[in-house]
């Protein structure tokens, strides 16, 4: 996993509630057995005017000029500003893979769906939950200001706005630790807990042997 410390990034606004993971990356791209290469198909049905399929050269496809990520002013954006319940629906980790592959590292919204939230942090994305009013203010600022950038400082848990205002945010300590250090949590679990897992398993098997097929 890529480390995340501090990022100063261009902000793109996606003004739509309940963005589901089918919309983030449609099902036909889930047939891939790889973890990378999903960026060109991020928001495929919104970004292009035709139906996408795996293996296509997306540079040749007709783009939807009205879609926000196709507007030149948001090219190179690494911060996505979104509305409530972002990432609802399917558990597909292809959604954060596509967002990360496209170039996003931070997503700010009033709320996120649970499974998406988990998946995103495991792929080096920082998800920041802010209240509705703050998100609304950011939407207005981004739309009014071409080149609007935010400076996101994970260690201080602060967002610096271009006007000097500071927005504090919460992040749970374990997720923060993994992000700051780019840690693989499987390695952490095995290093810190192998013995505890074995002990638990022994007790669990004694109490409920029917949960183990070789019992």
């Amino acid at each position: 996993m890529k480390k995340f410390e501090r990022l100063q990034g261009l902000v793109a606004p996606l003004d739509r509630a309940n963005v589901d993971t089918d919309l983030i990356i449609p099902k036909q791209f889930l047939k891939s057995i790889k973890r990378s290469g999903f960026g060109p198909n991020l928001f495929d049905e919104l970004r292009y005017l035709d139906e996408g399929y795996p293996g296509q050269d997306c540079a040749q496809r007709p783009r939807n000029p009205d879609f926000v990520l196709n507007q030149p002013r948001y090219e190179g954006a690494s911060v996505l500003l979104a509305r409530r319940n972002f990432g609802c629906g399917s558990s597909r980790e292809h959604a954060p893979w596509a967002l990360e592959d496209f170039g996003f590292r931070v997503i700010i919204a009033p709320s996120f769906a649970d499974i998406f939230f988990n998946n995103a942090f495991k792929n080096g994305l920082l998800l920041i939950t802010l209240d509705d009013d703050t998100v609304e203010q950011l939407f207005q600022a981004v739309e009014a200001t071409p080149g609007y950038r935010l400076d996101v400082d994970l260690s201080a848990q602060r967002i610096h706005r271009p006007d000097g205002d500071i927005i504090a945010f919460e992040v749970d300590p374990f997720r923060k630790y993994c992000l700051e250090n780019g840690l693989d949590d499987i390695g952490l679990t095995l290093t810190d807990n192998s013995e505890a897992i074995r002990e638990f398993e022994t007790r669990h098997r004694a109490a409920q042997p029917w949960l183990f097929r070789d019992a």
């Binding site: 558990s91 499974i115 988990n118 949590d185 679990t189 897992i197 398993e201």
Partner: peptide, 30 residues
């Protein structure tokens, strides 16, 4: 798969996970 919630009908604690978590469960059973 997010529809793993289905199995909760049996009084089981069941939920969908992402692929990183699939790998975590395979490797650690947790």
């Amino acid at each position: 798969d997010s529809h793993t919630a289905t199995h909760g009908a049996f009084g089981a604690l069941a939920h969908g996970i992402g692929t990183s978590e699939v790998e975590h469960v395979l490797a650690t059973q947790c």
